[in-house]
């Protein structure tokens, strides 16, 4: 059972209280983009066995979106942060590096 800390209301919520929202930090491509970019934005997803960033909504709580840094091979949670950001904050990256040296996700490391 996954327990995530909601950075908005401060509750440690378990997964029945949360709604998963898929991969985080997607860059939008719309009109004017190439077919390849649009396809990639719509369908291609990171699917790592290891460090992953994904969106969650505290659906049966405060209702707000946040992002969780997680390991998909162990269900370990490195930290959560508010969704109003384009990239993971430094303290989250440090927390991951402390436990998973040499991690990489997309072009982040």
């Amino acid at each position: 059972m996954l327990i995530l800390h909601c950075p908005h209301c401060g509750v440690d919520a378990e997964e029945t209280e949360l709604a998963p929202g898929g991969e985080a930090h997607l860059k939008r491509f719309g009109p004017g983009s190439s077919d390849a970019e649009f396809e990639s934005y719509l369908f291609h997803r990171e699917n790592p066995r290891g460090v992953h960033f994904e969106r969650w909504r505290h659906a049966f709580g405060c209702g707000k979106w946040f992002i969780a840094a997680r390991a998909t091979d162990t269900l370990e949670v490195f930290g959560t942060y508010r969704a109003q950001t384009a990239a993971p904050p430094q303290d989250i990256r440090d927390a991951i590096t402390a436990k998973r040296p040499g991690w990489a996700w997309r072009d982040l490391a």
Binding site: E15, H52, E54, T72, D73, L75
Partner: peptide, 9 residues
């Protein structure tokens, strides 16, 4: 959500 642990919820 993405998961490789061969467990479930």
């Amino acid at each position: 959500y993405n998961n490789y642990t061969q467990r479930g919820s």
